[in-house]
């Protein structure tokens, strides 16, 4: 069941993205930024975690999860260290996506040659 809902919810996120591209003529960079900010806002309102419970990877794979995790890390640290934690804790949970992108980006640059 969770596989089905992961598919549907993840697909719906992409449809919203496609509408942003086609109807509002946004370029991908701006659309992605809006998505991340939306994710952060949704988590701020406490709506993103129930969505993850419901849809699993359908909510954790789209880029909105990036914003969600940033807020999560900040809040986790803030609970322990107060207001300073908001600054220091932001990358606490998120590191995986960015570090994986950097590591595999450099490896990819060694492995592959640019085309065209």
């Amino acid at each position: 069941m969770i596989f089905f809902w992961a598919f549907v919810v993840g697909g719906l996120f992409c449809v919203i993205g496609q509408i942003m591209f086609d109807v509002f003529k946004l370029n991908p960079g701006i659309a992605l930024t809006i998505f991340v900010i939306t994710g952060a806002v949704l988590d701020g309102l406490g709506l993103y975690d129930p969505l993850i419970d419901f849809a699993g990877a359908g909510a954790t794979v789209p880029i909105t999860n990036f914003g969600n995790q940033l807020v999560h890390g900040a809040m986790q640290e803030a609970e322990q260290h107060g207001i300073i934690g908001v600054v220091t804790g932001i990358f606490e949970v998120t590191s995986a996506g960015i570090s994986a992108a950097i590591i595999f980006g450099v490896i990819g640059a060694f492995l592959f040659k640019p085309k065209g």
Partner: peptide
């Protein structure tokens, strides 16, 4: 299109 852009 967006189907490949929005996921991580």
């Amino acid at each position: 299109g967006a189907g490949s852009t929005i996921p991580v």
